[in-house]
Protein backbone atom coordinates (compact mmCIF):
# COMPACT_ATOMS: atom_id res chain seq x y z
CA UNK A 1 0.00 0.00 0.00
CA UNK A 2 1.34 3.40 -0.90
CA UNK A 3 1.57 5.32 2.36
CA UNK A 4 0.56 8.90 2.36
CA UNK A 5 1.86 11.06 5.17
CA UNK A 6 -0.85 12.17 7.58
CA UNK A 7 -1.58 15.88 7.54
CA UNK A 8 -3.72 18.11 9.72
CA UNK A 9 -6.43 17.98 7.09
CA UNK A 10 -6.36 14.21 6.65
CA UNK A 11 -6.43 13.79 10.44
CA UNK A 12 -9.47 16.02 10.72
CA UNK A 13 -11.28 14.08 8.01
CA UNK A 14 -10.35 10.74 9.58
CA UNK A 15 -11.73 11.82 12.92
CA UNK A 16 -15.03 12.69 11.31
CA UNK A 17 -15.26 9.06 10.23
CA UNK A 18 -14.00 7.76 13.55
CA UNK A 19 -15.91 9.98 15.94
CA UNK A 20 -19.22 8.05 16.20
CA UNK A 21 -17.34 4.87 17.08
CA UNK A 22 -14.76 6.62 19.27
CA UNK A 23 -17.38 8.43 21.34
CA UNK A 24 -19.13 5.15 22.17
CA UNK A 25 -15.97 3.09 22.69
CA UNK A 26 -14.48 5.90 24.76
CA UNK A 27 -17.53 6.40 26.97
CA UNK A 28 -18.64 2.80 27.44
CA UNK A 29 -15.41 0.81 27.11
CA UNK A 30 -12.25 2.85 27.68
CA UNK A 31 -13.48 5.20 30.39
CA UNK A 32 -15.18 2.40 32.40
CA UNK A 33 -12.00 0.28 32.25
CA UNK A 34 -10.12 3.08 33.97
CA UNK A 35 -13.07 3.71 36.28
CA UNK A 36 -13.45 0.10 37.40
CA UNK A 37 -9.84 0.04 38.49
CA UNK A 38 -10.30 3.37 40.25
CA UNK A 39 -13.54 2.28 41.90
CA UNK A 40 -11.93 -0.86 43.27
CA UNK A 41 -9.91 1.50 45.51
CA UNK A 42 -12.93 3.58 46.60
CA UNK A 43 -13.57 2.61 50.18
CA UNK A 44 -16.05 5.35 50.96
CA UNK A 45 -18.14 6.34 47.99
CA UNK A 46 -21.45 8.13 47.84
CA UNK A 47 -23.27 7.18 44.66
CA UNK A 48 -25.75 10.06 44.84
CA UNK A 49 -23.22 12.83 45.25
CA UNK A 50 -20.51 10.96 43.34
CA UNK A 51 -18.11 11.88 46.17
CA UNK A 52 -15.20 9.68 47.08
CA UNK A 53 -14.14 10.42 50.63
CA UNK A 54 -11.63 7.62 51.13
CA UNK A 55 -9.44 5.43 48.98
CA UNK A 56 -7.35 2.41 49.86
CA UNK A 57 -6.82 -1.27 49.47
CA UNK A 58 -9.47 -2.36 51.95
CA UNK A 59 -11.86 -3.64 49.24
CA UNK A 60 -9.30 -6.20 48.21
CA UNK A 61 -8.72 -7.16 51.83
CA UNK A 62 -12.48 -7.50 52.26
CA UNK A 63 -12.95 -9.85 49.31
CA UNK A 64 -9.96 -12.01 50.19
CA UNK A 65 -11.29 -12.49 53.70
CA UNK A 66 -14.88 -12.97 52.52
CA UNK A 67 -15.67 -16.70 52.53
CA UNK A 68 -18.30 -16.04 49.85
CA UNK A 69 -15.70 -14.61 47.51
CA UNK A 70 -13.34 -17.52 48.05
CA UNK A 71 -16.29 -19.85 47.42
CA UNK A 72 -17.11 -17.91 44.23
CA UNK A 73 -13.54 -18.16 43.01
CA UNK A 74 -13.44 -21.87 43.81
CA UNK A 75 -16.77 -22.52 42.08
CA UNK A 76 -15.72 -20.56 39.00
CA UNK A 77 -12.60 -22.71 38.68
CA UNK A 78 -14.56 -25.94 39.27
CA UNK A 79 -17.01 -24.80 36.59
CA UNK A 80 -14.27 -24.06 34.06
CA UNK A 81 -12.47 -27.34 34.81
CA UNK A 82 -15.78 -29.21 34.51
CA UNK A 83 -16.88 -27.59 31.27
CA UNK A 84 -13.83 -26.88 29.12
CA UNK A 85 -12.03 -30.26 28.67
CA UNK A 86 -15.27 -32.19 28.11
CA UNK A 87 -16.70 -29.56 25.79
CA UNK A 88 -13.50 -29.38 23.73
CA UNK A 89 -13.18 -33.17 23.41
CA UNK A 90 -16.83 -33.75 22.49
CA UNK A 91 -16.80 -30.87 20.00
CA UNK A 92 -13.58 -32.16 18.45
CA UNK A 93 -14.96 -35.66 18.01
CA UNK A 94 -18.23 -34.44 16.51
CA UNK A 95 -16.44 -32.00 14.18
CA UNK A 96 -14.17 -34.77 12.92
CA UNK A 97 -17.16 -37.05 12.33
CA UNK A 98 -19.08 -34.25 10.59
CA UNK A 99 -16.06 -33.63 8.39
CA UNK A 100 -16.16 -37.24 7.21
CA UNK A 101 -19.74 -37.28 5.95
CA UNK A 102 -21.48 -35.58 3.04
CA UNK A 103 -25.09 -36.66 3.35
CA UNK A 104 -27.03 -34.58 5.93
CA UNK A 105 -23.88 -32.81 7.19
CA UNK A 106 -25.62 -29.45 6.86
CA UNK A 107 -28.63 -30.71 8.77
CA UNK A 108 -26.48 -31.95 11.66
CA UNK A 109 -24.59 -28.66 11.77
CA UNK A 110 -27.88 -26.77 12.03
CA UNK A 111 -29.05 -29.01 14.88
CA UNK A 112 -25.83 -28.83 16.90
CA UNK A 113 -25.66 -25.08 16.49
CA UNK A 114 -29.27 -24.37 17.46
CA UNK A 115 -28.62 -23.53 21.15
CA UNK A 116 -26.14 -20.81 20.15
CA UNK A 117 -28.87 -18.65 18.59
CA UNK A 118 -31.30 -19.34 21.42
CA UNK A 119 -31.81 -17.08 24.41
CA UNK A 120 -29.91 -18.36 27.45
CA UNK A 121 -32.91 -17.43 29.59
CA UNK A 122 -35.20 -19.70 27.54
CA UNK A 123 -32.61 -22.49 27.50
CA UNK A 124 -32.14 -22.29 31.25
CA UNK A 125 -35.90 -22.45 31.80
CA UNK A 126 -36.15 -25.53 29.58
CA UNK A 127 -33.38 -27.23 31.54
CA UNK A 128 -34.88 -26.16 34.84
CA UNK A 129 -37.95 -28.12 33.77
CA UNK A 130 -35.89 -31.08 32.50
CA UNK A 131 -34.02 -31.16 35.83
CA UNK A 132 -37.25 -31.02 37.87
CA UNK A 133 -36.97 -33.64 40.59
CA UNK A 134 -40.63 -34.70 40.45
CA UNK A 135 -41.78 -34.38 36.86
CA UNK A 136 -38.48 -33.85 35.06
CA UNK A 137 -37.58 -35.63 31.85
CA UNK A 138 -34.03 -36.44 32.92
CA UNK A 139 -34.94 -38.28 36.12
CA UNK A 140 -37.71 -40.13 34.28
CA UNK A 141 -35.15 -41.21 31.68
CA UNK A 142 -32.58 -42.26 34.28
CA UNK A 143 -35.37 -44.13 36.08
CA UNK A 144 -35.56 -46.54 33.12
CA UNK A 145 -32.07 -47.71 34.12
CA UNK A 146 -33.08 -47.99 37.75
CA UNK A 147 -31.34 -44.80 38.83
CA UNK A 148 -33.07 -43.11 41.76
CA UNK A 149 -34.38 -39.57 41.11
CA UNK A 150 -31.75 -36.88 41.66
CA UNK A 151 -32.78 -33.46 42.90
CA UNK A 152 -30.47 -31.73 40.42
CA UNK A 153 -31.25 -28.15 41.27
CA UNK A 154 -31.85 -28.31 45.03
CA UNK A 155 -29.13 -30.70 46.09
CA UNK A 156 -25.84 -28.82 46.65
CA UNK A 157 -23.93 -31.92 45.51
CA UNK A 158 -25.60 -31.94 42.10
CA UNK A 159 -26.29 -28.27 41.29
CA UNK A 160 -22.85 -27.63 39.81
CA UNK A 161 -23.05 -30.82 37.75
CA UNK A 162 -26.43 -29.75 36.42
CA UNK A 163 -25.00 -26.35 35.46
CA UNK A 164 -21.97 -27.94 33.78
CA UNK A 165 -24.06 -30.40 31.72
CA UNK A 166 -26.31 -27.62 30.47
CA UNK A 167 -23.39 -25.34 29.62
CA UNK A 168 -21.58 -28.05 27.64
CA UNK A 169 -24.78 -28.77 25.73
CA UNK A 170 -25.25 -25.08 24.99
CA UNK A 171 -21.69 -24.28 23.88
CA UNK A 172 -21.04 -27.38 21.79
CA UNK A 173 -22.20 -25.92 18.46
CA UNK A 174 -19.92 -22.88 18.72
CA UNK A 175 -16.86 -25.06 19.34
CA UNK A 176 -17.84 -27.49 16.57
CA UNK A 177 -18.03 -24.63 14.04
CA UNK A 178 -14.54 -23.46 15.03
CA UNK A 179 -13.14 -26.99 14.75
CA UNK A 180 -14.77 -27.44 11.34
CA UNK A 181 -13.10 -24.21 10.20
CA UNK A 182 -9.77 -25.58 11.47
CA UNK A 183 -10.32 -28.93 9.74
CA UNK A 184 -11.15 -27.29 6.43
CA UNK A 185 -7.76 -25.55 6.56
CA UNK A 186 -5.89 -28.84 6.71
CA UNK A 187 -4.61 -29.86 3.31
CA UNK A 188 -6.25 -33.15 2.30
CA UNK A 189 -2.99 -34.29 0.70
CA UNK A 190 -1.37 -34.96 4.10
CA UNK A 191 -3.95 -37.64 4.82
CA UNK A 192 -3.77 -39.06 1.33
CA UNK A 193 -0.02 -39.42 1.55
CA UNK A 194 -0.28 -41.06 4.96
CA UNK A 195 -2.90 -43.43 3.61
CA UNK A 196 -0.60 -44.44 0.74
CA UNK A 197 2.14 -45.04 3.31
CA UNK A 198 -0.23 -47.42 5.08
CA UNK A 199 -1.26 -45.36 8.10
CA UNK A 200 -4.57 -46.57 9.57
CA UNK A 201 -7.45 -44.32 10.63
CA UNK A 202 -6.23 -43.97 14.21
CA UNK A 203 -2.65 -43.23 13.15
CA UNK A 204 -3.84 -40.60 10.68
CA UNK A 205 -6.01 -39.05 13.39
CA UNK A 206 -3.26 -39.16 16.02
CA UNK A 207 -0.29 -38.04 13.91
CA UNK A 208 -1.89 -35.77 11.30
CA UNK A 209 -5.26 -34.37 12.33
CA UNK A 210 -4.47 -33.73 16.00
CA UNK A 211 -1.11 -31.94 15.51
CA UNK A 212 -2.35 -29.89 12.56
CA UNK A 213 -5.49 -28.97 14.46
CA UNK A 214 -3.61 -27.95 17.60
CA UNK A 215 -3.77 -24.17 16.97
CA UNK A 216 -7.56 -24.44 16.76
CA UNK A 217 -7.81 -26.73 19.78
CA UNK A 218 -5.81 -24.24 21.74
CA UNK A 219 -7.94 -21.34 20.55
CA UNK A 220 -11.20 -23.14 21.37
CA UNK A 221 -9.90 -23.95 24.85
CA UNK A 222 -8.89 -20.35 25.53
CA UNK A 223 -12.22 -18.99 24.27
CA UNK A 224 -14.11 -21.52 26.41
CA UNK A 225 -12.05 -20.77 29.52
CA UNK A 226 -12.59 -17.03 29.20
CA UNK A 227 -16.33 -17.37 28.64
CA UNK A 228 -16.44 -19.84 31.55
CA UNK A 229 -15.00 -17.20 33.87
CA UNK A 230 -17.93 -14.95 32.98
CA UNK A 231 -20.80 -17.38 33.56
CA UNK A 232 -23.87 -15.67 35.01
CA UNK A 233 -27.13 -15.78 32.98
CA UNK A 234 -27.55 -19.57 33.21
CA UNK A 235 -27.11 -19.57 36.99
CA UNK A 236 -29.46 -16.67 37.54
CA UNK A 237 -32.31 -18.32 35.65
CA UNK A 238 -31.66 -21.98 36.45
CA UNK A 239 -31.71 -21.33 40.20
CA UNK A 240 -34.40 -18.64 40.18
CA UNK A 241 -32.16 -15.65 40.90
CA UNK A 242 -30.13 -17.46 43.56
CA UNK A 243 -26.56 -18.70 43.38
CA UNK A 244 -27.71 -22.31 43.73
CA UNK A 245 -28.52 -24.36 46.85
CA UNK A 246 -26.10 -23.51 49.65
CA UNK A 247 -24.34 -21.07 47.27
CA UNK A 248 -22.99 -24.10 45.44
CA UNK A 249 -23.03 -22.28 42.11
CA UNK A 250 -21.97 -18.86 43.35
CA UNK A 251 -19.45 -17.71 40.73
CA UNK A 252 -17.26 -14.65 40.30
CA UNK A 253 -19.68 -12.67 38.14
CA UNK A 254 -22.61 -13.68 40.35
CA UNK A 255 -20.68 -12.38 43.36
CA UNK A 256 -19.96 -9.15 41.48
CA UNK A 257 -23.66 -8.85 40.59
CA UNK A 258 -24.79 -9.41 44.19
CA UNK A 259 -22.36 -6.90 45.64
CA UNK A 260 -23.22 -4.34 42.99
CA UNK A 261 -26.90 -4.77 42.38
CA UNK A 262 -28.39 -6.11 45.60
CA UNK A 263 -25.96 -4.76 48.20
CA UNK A 264 -24.87 -1.55 46.43
CA UNK A 265 -21.25 -2.08 47.48
CA UNK A 266 -19.68 -0.62 44.36
CA UNK A 267 -16.08 -0.68 45.54
CA UNK A 268 -16.21 -4.34 46.50
CA UNK A 269 -17.97 -5.28 43.26
CA UNK A 270 -15.31 -3.37 41.30
CA UNK A 271 -12.57 -5.21 43.20
CA UNK A 272 -14.19 -8.52 42.21
CA UNK A 273 -14.22 -7.19 38.63
CA UNK A 274 -10.49 -6.53 38.84
CA UNK A 275 -9.95 -10.15 39.92
CA UNK A 276 -12.03 -11.30 36.93
CA UNK A 277 -9.93 -9.08 34.68
CA UNK A 278 -6.71 -10.50 36.12
CA UNK A 279 -7.83 -14.08 35.49
CA UNK A 280 -8.69 -13.20 31.88
CA UNK A 281 -5.37 -11.42 31.49
CA UNK A 282 -3.42 -14.44 32.76
CA UNK A 283 -5.14 -16.70 30.22
CA UNK A 284 -4.54 -14.19 27.42
CA UNK A 285 -0.84 -13.89 28.32
CA UNK A 286 -0.52 -17.69 28.40
CA UNK A 287 -2.23 -17.80 25.01
CA UNK A 288 0.19 -15.32 23.45
CA UNK A 289 3.20 -17.05 25.02
CA UNK A 290 2.04 -20.55 24.12
CA UNK A 291 1.06 -19.81 20.54
CA UNK A 292 4.47 -18.26 19.94
CA UNK A 293 6.27 -21.37 21.16
CA UNK A 294 4.25 -24.52 20.79
CA UNK A 295 1.40 -24.33 18.34
CA UNK A 296 2.17 -25.93 15.00
CA UNK A 297 1.10 -23.49 12.37
CA UNK A 298 0.73 -24.91 8.90
Amino acid sequence: MIKQKPSAKSTLIAFLYLSPMLIIIGTFYLYPIVMSFAMSFYTKYNFYTNKVSEVGLSNFVTIWTDPDFIEALKNTIIFVVGVVPLSVIIALVIAILLNKINFAAGFFKTVYFLPFVTSTVAISLIWQWIYNSQYGLLDAFLGIFGIKPIDWLNDPHWAMTALIIMTIWQGLGFNIILFLAGLSNIDKRYEQVAQIDGANTWQRFRYITIPLLSPMTFLVSVTSIISGFKVFDQIFVLFGGNPGPGKSTLTLVFYLYEKFYTEWKYGIAAAAGVVLFTLTLIITVIQVWYSKRHVHYV
Binding site: P32, L256, G273
Partner: peptide, 16 residues
Protein backbone atom coordinates in the same frame (compact mmCIF):
# COMPACT_ATOMS: atom_id res chain seq x y z
CA UNK B 1 -11.01 -3.05 25.01
CA UNK B 2 -11.58 -6.41 23.30
CA UNK B 3 -9.86 -8.39 26.05
CA UNK B 4 -11.63 -6.73 28.97
CA UNK B 5 -14.59 -8.74 30.28
CA UNK B 6 -17.67 -6.61 29.70
CA UNK B 7 -19.17 -7.81 33.02
CA UNK B 8 -16.54 -5.71 34.73
CA UNK B 9 -17.69 -2.56 32.94
CA UNK B 10 -21.28 -2.85 34.08
CA UNK B 11 -20.66 -0.96 37.32
CA UNK B 12 -19.09 2.22 35.90
CA UNK B 13 -21.48 2.14 32.92
CA UNK B 14 -24.43 2.00 35.28
CA UNK B 15 -23.04 5.00 37.15
CA UNK B 16 -22.45 6.93 33.90
Amino acid sequence: TMMVPSEMLIIPNFVT
